[in-house]
């Protein structure tokens, strides 16, 4: 804590677009009082200070290099609370799509002769490397959800993380179901919290917020098959944002009735 009692906060990023941090900056438009509640000591995208004394660390981005692990562990050692900020940190997002290819081939395809300049290993969420205390899902994050998480941390409460699917928020908005108008949607197995933003604007959910804790994968596949998707197209829906989770679930053989 600072002498004024405000917790010190730092922002970090790994493999990502840094758009979630931009959303944090954006959230100040409507929640300027955030700056009165916390002291930001490090936030490369927004300020020049490089304070190393912080209690809460928000980490955006996936871990994609062996060398990143050390930096992650250093942050973990300093921070009392580590928050995964956005899909890249939470699920490895689209970054994990490269895990479906041989990594040597991936490097050559993009960087040709200079491939060895660009170190990389299988993209993973930060929780695969360090312990994570809270998650703000989404690509990008929802700024209201970010504010709710900050408030919960300030109150010393467990930050809220919706454990129900997007369908709940979609129904409560009384949207026409995507499946009723010939579209496809991952809403039934995807973690809510986005206000069902994609279906609300006529696009099926892509699953950017990761799966609910106990998704009925088989039933979801049946529903997508019924809606006319091929096996390949169904797998594509599952892996688009959630390659890492799909592989992890497969490895665990996780299935719950």
């Amino acid at each position: 804590m600072t002498s004024n009692g405000k917790p010190k906060v730092a922002f970090f990023d790994f493999a990502c677009c840094e758009g979630c941090q931009l959303t944090v900056v954006d959230s100040l438009q409507t929640h300027l009082d955030l700056l009165e509640a916390v002291e930001i000591v490090q936030f490369r995208e927004a300020i020049s200070d490089r304070g190393e004394d912080y209690q809460i660390a928000f980490i955006e981005g996936s871990c994609t290099r062996q060398a990143d692990e050390e930096r992650l562990r250093k942050i973990r050692a300093q921070a009392s609370v580590v928050v995964a900020l956005g899909a890249c940190a939470h699920t490895a997002c689209v970054n994990a799509l490269k895990n479906l290819h041989p990594l040597e081939d991936v490097r050559r395809w993009v960087y040709g002769d200079q491939a060895e300049w660009y170190d990389t290993y299988e993209a993973r969420p930060i929780s695969a490397v360090i312990e994570v205390d809270a998650i703000i899902p989404g690509c990008p994050i929802d700024r209201e959800e970010f504010i709710r998480v900050v408030k919960a941390l300030l109150l010393g409460k467990k930050p809220p993380l919706p454990d129900y699917p997007v369908c709940v928020e979609c129904k409560l908005k009384e949207n026409v179901c995507m499946f009723h108008i010939g579209k496809f949607c991952m809403g039934p197995v995807t973690r809510a919290g986005c206000g069902a933003i994609c279906p609300t604007y006529g696009d099926g959910c892509e699953g950017c917020r990761g799966f609910i804790p106990a998704p009925n994968e088989n039933a979801m596949k049946d529903v997508l098959a019924d809606a006319g998707l091929t096996v390949e197209a169904i797998m594509a829906r599952f892996t688009m944002f959630n390659t890492y989770l799909v592989s992890a679930r497969k490895a665990d053989g996780e299935e719950r009735r």
Binding site: P165, C167, V168, K171, V189, N216, N218, A219, R257
Partner: peptide
Amino acid sequence: ERCLACGSCTN
């Protein structure tokens, strides 16, 4: 086995 536990039926 078929239910997705999406809550639509009750909502």
